[in-house]
Design a binder for these strands. Structure first.
Length: 505
RNA sequence: GCUCCGAUAGUGUAGCACGGCCAAUCAUGCGAGACUCUCACUCUCGUGACUGGGGUUCAAAUCCCCAUCGGAGCACCA
């Protein structure tokens, strides 16, 4: 039965259902809709141990998209409770806020976990009182062996009073690192070993990098605990996070149960791998920067948001890209082509065009008169750029490599030539008629006068140096297109030297 | 070893909660062509997927079971 005849038939027997038939036809675009009862409160919770990356962007964008759409509250919470292994980076706090704002995701509230240790201690104490936590002195391997055998350790049945006493000692820094931890009592025989009595606090003697905190504390919560408590304190109603934290939720629910709290709704997404960047870790990048392999956190070869911004990626493009990824739990490995396509749609209509000749080679044109070429600033928006051409111009080595003596070609927006010699490269002027291109299908190549700007383009796959036409120095901080090369953002101009960051083709 | 997730074209995604509008959506990529004084943009056409096997049913991408593959957790990392 065709949809039409079906609808017709339905019209006869049950016209009231026809509406429903139509509704299902239109799928929801963008993120899946949410069922919201109360106010929506969401948080984005990074560890500021490095600058935000494309991976962070997904969290930032999706959270902000939902809170924007449902008029909710967006919180950024810095989970900086590990001063040692994943030591926070002082500048990163600021960078996160900057990049969130750049992405159009300015948070309504900023929370720093390392400022709120007292609150976590209070909950811990209450948990101990209620018999939901105990101070454990087992060595790691000893506990692991017991745990794997589903056996409780001797400290598990300690009286709350005694636990409280030991906990106070922990807080007074009377123990060394590794000597004592606070464990949450779950089910030591739980079928999933990942759930059994987990550690909520441990002793760390390393100073926290934040001046406000410094060496004030030696007892630090682990993520599972800190996050569990904060999500409650902040009134979070929906958490979206990676599916690597699914087990974490099962652990945290024990805390919620002891405290009589309600666990927020949760959604998870899979792992994201970006084809172009492979396996770069924050610590690895940090090291490589220190060694001078990258020029900084905004090196165009890096997947940081600072690098994307410097390259001229627009936040709207990044937002759309992230939203289109959806909320799947599948692990995905993606290529940035789609992001680039999205970005191109935004910048192509506004980017002015210029000539940039990389690996320049001199080309002498016999019989040519010096002339000022007039080329459009943009193919459809109007505006003209004037490029003075002498009798010798520069062209790309790549083009020269494919030329043959005798070949006729057009220097774009200038005139036609015939190659008379390859080495040294020489040609003769043969007119200005466009018929050469239209009828004889001659190639068009771009060129640049001898007196150009020194241009360096930093791109994900290396550096290009060459000569660019004058005029682009006025486009500082703008994205322009180097014809037959790609889009770039003019990053700096000093005298006759221009540095540009490659955006994409 | 134990436990938990997931599987739709090259890539990403829609459809799956409620089986029939699905010979499966959209984007990107790729191919061909048109346009163009750029290899860009735009337009047109094309390309290509329900992991496998069973089951339930009049009907399965959708429900159930098994297998396979991929990922994650079992840290005093986040």
């Amino acid at each position: 039965m065709t949809p039409e005849s079906r609808a017709e038939k339905l019209q006869k027997i049950a016209p009231e259902l026809l509406e429903e038939l139509k509704e299902k036809k239109e799928p929801e675009k963008g993120l899946p809709p949410l069922e919201i009862n109360d106010q929506l409160v969401m948080r984005f919770a990074p560890n500021p141990n490095g600058p935000p990356t494309l991976g962070s962007a997904r969290g930032i964008v999706v959270n902000s998209e939902y809170t924007r759409k449902y008029n909710g509250k967006l919180i950024i919470r810095f989970d900086d409770t590990d001063p040692a292994t994943k030591r926070p980076m002082l500048e990163a706090y600021k960078w996160y806020l900057e990049d969130c704002e750049w992405l159009g995701a300015k948070p309504d509230e900023v929370v720093i976990a390392s400022d709120r240790l007292q609150r976590y201690y209070e909950v811990a104490e209450e948990l101990i009182r209620r018999g939901g936590a105990y101070v454990c002195f087992c060595e790691q391997e000893v506990f692991k062996t017991l745990k794997d055998a589903k056996k409780p350790c001797p400290h598990r049945e300690q009286e709350p009073e005694k636990n409280l006493e030991n906990w106070k000692k922990m807080l007074r820094c009377e123990y060394q690192e590794q000597e004592a931890v606070l464990r949450i009592k779950t089910d030591i025989a739980h079928k999933d070993p990942a759930i059994r009595d987990w550690v909520s606090f441990r002793i760390i003697r390393t100073h926290h990098p934040r001046q406000e905190v410094g060496d004030k504390y030696c007892v630090w919560p682990l993520l599972d605990f800190e996050s569990a408590v904060e999500d409650h304190l902040l009134g979070t109603t929906l958490i979206i996070r990676g599916k690597d934290l699914i087990d974490s939720e099962r652990r945290q629910r024990y805390v919620y149960e002891y405290m009589g709290w309600t666990y927020p709704k949760t959604m998870h997404w899979g792992r994201v791998q970006i084809y172009e960047f492979g396996k770069l870790s924050t610590s690895g990048i940090k090291k490589a920067i220190a060694e001078g392999k990258y020029i900084g956190w905004d090196d165009p070869r890096l997947p940081t948001l600072r690098a994307m911004r410097r390259r001229g990626i627009r936040p709207e493009a990044l937002r759309k890209f992230m939203i289109d990824l959806g909320l799947g739990e599948t692990d995905i490995s993606l290529s940035l082509d789609t992001l680039y396509a999205e970005n191109r749609k935004i910048i192509d209509p506004i980017a002015n065009r210029y000539f940039f000749v990389w690996n320049p080679v001199e080309l002498e044109v016999e019989g040519a008169q010096p002339k000022i070429a007039k080329a459009p600033l943009h193919p459809s928006r109007g505006g003209v750029r004037e490029i003075p051409a002498g009798t010798t111009v520069l062209v790309c080595r790549n083009d020269v490599d494919t030329l043959k003596a005798g070949e006729k070609l057009r220097l774009k927006d200038l005139y036609n030539i015939r190659i008379t010699s390859i080495a040294p490269l020489k040609a003769e002027f043969i007119g200005t008629d466009m018929d050469l291109v239209k009828k004889e299908k001659a190639r068009i190549i771009h060129w640049v006068p001898l007196e150009g700007l020194k241009v360096k383009v930093l791109s994900p796959d290396g550096e290009y140096t060459g000569i660019g036409e004058r005029g682009m120095e006025k486009e500082l901080d703008k994205v322009v297109q180097f014809e037959r090369f790609g889009f770039v953002r003019i990053d700096s101009v000093s005298g006759d030297e221009v540095v540009a960051y490659f955006t994409h083709k």
